[in-house]
Design a protein around this nucleic acid. Structure first.
Lengths: 143, 143
DNA sequence: TGATAACCGAGTTAATTGGTCGGGATTAAA
DNA sequence: TTTAATCCCGACCAATTAACTCGGTTATCA
């Protein structure tokens, strides 16, 4: 029941991007140095975020990445799903072709717990927007 | 963001155990056959459930396992934590010694999302009791 | 033209997962 | 007292995944 390092770094990087969203494009090098994350590893994460339409890239010298939307419109859930794919807490819930299809769907006693779990995870991640992370809303109380 | 097969089987097995909780001890062989799970794999899961105090075992011929409490008092969350350990959706939340301690605790922008996520996961899993799974409460609507 | 930076795909290493295997200890029943 | 059922335990193993790393190519600016 863990998120990958990719997700952790992805969310952290997006928070940085949100923080500097007024300036021009921010190169990965900056983020890598500031957060102590391997540049090469970041380079592997960012294409996913771009393909998901959350950021856009500027190539060449003085290039970098910028948010495709204001921080107040980007949900943590968007980021998580962009880098990890859809949230599926247990294989039998998977809709994808390659996964072993669950033939016990109707009979399965436990299925409904996993559905509930999946929904709640998506909900909580979608409740939080990038602007909340970057100090614009302080005094965050966990609940 | 996936639960292990151990957890999936563990919860299914516990549901069976709840279903037959009026009869005597149920051998793993029964559960394995009924659910199509490898006996040897189940044998690896059940000690965790016993150590957590959720079931008790009866050794020898005509032995098996029985719930340590009525189904209405056993939470799915108890089972999950018994076989997978505490729910920690991201490493920097870990309290354990061996994990790399997070030195950014206070400064970390993202920490509070992960805390919120961890709390919600525990909540939803603790809302569901074994008796709900075994048909005693039908018409389950996911929400 | 040279430096910067995104882009791409393949390779590597270590850990985890999802099992299997073989046997030992305990107990009820024949 | 033997036998069969059952839990119990630890070792082993193959496949997958995670978390990087490496070596380069392409685009852009100064």
């Amino acid at each position: 029941m863990k998120l990958s390092a990719k997700v952790e770094y992805g969310v952290r990087a997006m928070a940085i991007l949100a923080y500097y969203c007024q300036s021009g494009p921010l190169p990965l090098r900056e983020i890598a140095d500031q957060e102590g994350i391997s540049l090469k590893f970041l380079e592997q994460i960012f294409p996913d975020l771009r393909r998901a339409g959350l950021i856009s890239s500027v190539r060449g010298a003085r290039g970098g990445y910028i948010l495709a939307y204001p921080p107040s419109e980007i949900r943590v859930g968007d980021i998580v799903r962009a880098v990890e794919g859809p949230i599926v807490p247990i294989n039998c819930l998977s809709e994808s072709e390659k996964d072993p299809y669950c033939h016990r769907k109707e009979a399965c006693l436990t299925r409904y717990v996993w559905e509930k779990l999946r929904n709640r995870i998506n909900e909580v991640l979608d409740e939080v927007f990038l602007d909340e992370l970057v100090d614009l809303k302080p005094a965050q109380t966990v609940n």
